[in-house]
Design a protein around this nucleic acid. Structure first.
Lengths: 201, 201
DNA sequence: GTCAAAAAGTTGCAAGTGCAACTTGTATAT
DNA sequence: ATATACAAGTTGCACTTGCAACTTTTTGAC
């Protein structure tokens, strides 16, 4: 069986959207997994007063959909900010037991598993940080995790500090204030986007 | 091929621990997925000053391990608080492409996928709440998600308020304070563990 | 270069929150 | 019935934080 036919059987569809288009308005009520294969999209939240705000950024390999989070079922829409290609997977069809008879399916599922598992690990990592009640603790937890991942006391941010504040779900200025306190306490040194851990970890 | 032999091939092992035992001290450095099949365990964090604190509760179907989070690689141990049965999965062996030739594997992976995917959705749900900066917003987001899940403005907590505070990663007394504000503002009514949403959602 | 836009960094202030230390209520067991 | 433990609920206070409103620096485009 061809992979294309199997995709139809499984309810897996590939869609392309031009910049500015809304991604599948119809998927909202379904039990689906979406994967961004290429491009960039954003989940926009429409507030009661009418103005929109970015709820989530979807880069390449991002996963979204009602099966993934409570995201896509309310007053929100997913907008392609560049030309974007997505894979939409019907979760119910995907989980049919007889699928495992098809080898293409098994390879596909194995890859999908790896993607979801990686996302799950990353999200758990973030939760470990978000669980901390205070900004200082969030920062220290973040440093600890980065240290463990890279086995180095030098942390290099590949993104703006603003994005770090978003990741930690804290106010940007409050974060800078606490970074200064950490510097004053000789716990870290900061040089641009390079953070050096000075304490024993 | 028998499922037992396949498990060996995949590096999947089932272990039983008596109450009080430490779960696999050796797994810490490996790339593993652990699943609690039965029983109850806790990830304990040993602090610098020596006293332990609960980092995570692992009930039935809980997933843990170094593949899942940055949890198990530092000064922590997993203790069986009841007689507990766990499945330990070697992630590298699990992801070998040739595995998909075995049908037992495919069924196993399909089930594992469902478990991880469910956990991922639940974790994402929690992140939506933790991302909110203020207690009031965390509570309102929590209500919103519960409302969407049950299509009801009556939310019944199946756990103590203390656990809700932990879930929201906020101080318990601060949570009660804010619940009172929400009551004063006529946004909710609270009767025991039943919360009634009074506003349009 | 010059300009504009984004990011970095700072500060005051009011409001929010964690923490400690309670009281009250509600189960469960002996 | 009494004791014990746990959950619910409250309060004061000091500290933390979000927010707004800046300035300064860096980056990227023309």
């Amino acid at each position: 069986m061809q992979i294309g036919k199997l995709f139809v059987l499984l309810g897996v569809h590939r869609y392309r959207y031009a910049k500015g288009e809304e991604i599948l308005p119809t998927i909202k009520n379904d039990n689906i997994i979406g994967i961004v294969l290429d491009g960039f999209a954003q989940i926009m939240n429409i507030e009661y007063n009418g103005n929109e705000m970015v709820q989530e950024n979807l880069g390449k390999n991002s996963v979204f959909g009602t099966t993934i989070s409570a995201t896509n079922s309310e007053d929100c829409q997913i907008i392609a900010k560049e030309d974007t290609e997505v894979l939409i997977i019907d979760y119910v069809k995907l989980m049919r037991p007889e699928n495992t008879n098809h080898n293409y399916f098994n390879i596909f599922l194995s890859n999908l598993f790896d993607i979801i598992n990686t996302k799950y690990r990353e999200t758990n990592e973030r939760v470990k940080v978000l669980e901390k009640k205070q900004i200082r603790e969030k920062l220290l937890k973040f440093f600890e995790i980065e240290h463990r991942k890279n086995h180095s006391k030098n942390i290099y941010l590949s993104f703006p500090f603003k994005d770090l504040a978003d990741y930690l779900a804290i106010d940007r200025s409050a974060m800078f204030r606490e970074l200064k306190h950490l510097k004053d306490d000789k716990l870290i040194e900061v040089d641009g986007r390079k953070i050096k851990i000075l304490y024993e970890i």
